[in-house]
Nucleic acid binder design. Structure first.
Lengths: 92, 92
DNA sequence: GCGTGGTATCGATAGATGTCAATATGTAAT
DNA sequence: ATTACATATTGACATCTATCGATACCACGC
């Protein structure tokens, strides 16, 4: 594992290693997509806090952001999760 | 995903979400086992720092500690890594 | 028991992080 | 343009964390 690869995987892991963000990922995976407007209530966090967590996940490459009218919708990027799996299975 | 399950997975993710600990896991996975005595040099960190990181990994259930004479040896607990995989593949 | 060497814990410190209130920015309808 | 509402950014704060030096705690051989 190169130093760059370690750093990249750490970005993914840090993004997931928070209860709010893990629940976000789980919800969006299960639903297929989610509107930011529903998330503060669903997570019992303020709107700025949710916005912050969404940004972390997008910057880690784990979520895609799509603007629909005034609403922001988010999807999981599965290939980014697979990068995680590759580290801990049959690999060097 | 229950709240307890989220918290448990977050413990695993937090444990892995550090470059030193990720390299530790990778090294021990590849070698099968590792002696604590070799790790400060291998990771370019002080002995207390490495000891701290090993403790975090053991407490997350990711490593087993085995005392052999004066030396401490560590193994990966693969079932704990599989718990991670279960979250992000075919699951609820 | 005593000394030696490996490992863990303590204390301190600098930097990162989660949270929210306040505010700014964006988007669309009127 | 103006209003309304969805989202992002800023600023501040408390908490957590990675790190190391100093020190304590083992396990063994003598």
């Amino acid at each position: 594992m190169s130093e760059a690869e370690v750093d990249d995987i750490v970005v993914i892991l840090k993004a997931l290693a928070d209860p709010v963000r893990l629940r976000l990922m789980n919800m969006i995976l299960n639903a297929g997509e989610a509107c930011a407007c529903d998330l503060p209530d669903a997570l019992d966090r303020s709107q700025p806090t949710v916005s912050h967590h969404l940004k972390v996940l997008v910057e880690a490459g784990l979520l895609d952001r799509e603007q629909r009218g005034k609403w922001a919708w988010f999807h999981v990027r599965p290939e980014r999760l697979q990068a995680l799996g590759a580290v801990f299975q049959i690999d060097s």
